[in-house]
Write a protein that binds this DNA or RNA. Structure first.
Length: 249
DNA sequence: TTTACGGCTGACA
DNA sequence: GTGTCAGCCGTAA
């Protein structure tokens, strides 16, 4: 005679049956991404997790990482959330995200990062300020290092304060590749960093921006003024751009 | 409760 | 210009 409880417990160790509703079990799918295949885990509410896919078919280490972090079961799924493919191929597309379980600070950091337009970059310090903790710059790096959904929350657009690209979960080279793919002039950024330029203003408007700000890029060479610090720009009579917000006024 | 740890930053040699 | 150090701060163990 079989003990029903033992039998049920044994069932827990088996792969989740495909008849389980999506609200209980999350599903993973492998998709091509801008720097190689990715594994994406989705709940009924949206994308929860994205990581580089292993070179082999053995996806178990990635799934184990997911279970460890979220304590939720996951099974293969053919379902691709709306907007995910376009988001991964550089087109407009914003799949729903399920950021359940992240702390308030983490959410604020991810939200701020998600507001950085494609083709532009912002420093860690900017993210910290936008997240409401201007001094938690280092902690922003920690949060982004464990971004559950890189590429979708574009942490590759967050750079060091001096303009250097900085580190990235998928490697510094991937960071540069992703930025180039979005039309960012990476070499130009590095040249600015080397020159100590952090802000760029227009002497016709008296406004300073981050160099990648859409407004900064329209300033003609004759009217361009580069600054090393915001204080220097202010001393010269410039005010921060209200779009890229190098500072709050 | 305490400690250690980072995708950082600014100051100083 | 480059290298080092201390400070910073939210998490996880």
């Amino acid at each position: 005679m079989t003990d029903p409880l033992l039998s049920a417990l044994r069932g827990l160790a088996e792969p989740a049956p495909t008849t389980l509703p999506d609200t209980v079990v999350d599903g993973w799918v492998r998709l091509p991404g801008p720097v190689g295949d990715v594994l994406v885990v989705t709940s009924s509410r949206g994308v929860r997790y994205l990581r580089p896919a292993p070179g082999t078919d053995d996806v178990e280490p990635v799934l184990a990482g997911y279970r460890d972090r979220f304590a939720r079961p996951v099974r293969p799924s053919g379902r691709v959330p709306r907007g995910l493919r376009p988001a991964l191929t550089g087109h407009r597309g914003h799949p729903d995200l399920d950021l359940d379980g992240v702390t308030d600070f983490e959410r604020a950091v991810l939200d701020a990062t998600a507001r950085i337009p494609a083709g532009q970059t912002r420093p860690y310090g900017w993210v910290a300020r936008e997240a409401g903790r201007p001094r938690a710059v280092r902690a922003v790096g920690t949060v982004l290092a464990r971004n559950p959904v890189p590429l979708l929350v574009p942490c590759h657009r967050v750079t060091r304060g001096d303009g250097a690209l900085g580190q990235y979960m998928l490697g510094a080279e991937a960071k540069a590749t992703l930025l180039r793919g979005e039309g960012t002039d990476v070499e130009g950024l590095e040249a600015l960093a080397a020159a100590g330029t952090r802000l760029r203003g227009s002497d016709t408007t008296g406004i300073v921006c981050f160099p990648t700000c859409h407004h900064a890029r329209r300033i003609t060479a004759a009217h361009r003024r580069d600054f090393r610090t915001l204080d220097a720009a202010r001393a010269a009579g410039y005010r921060p751009c209200r779009v890229c917000r190098p500072a709050v006024d």
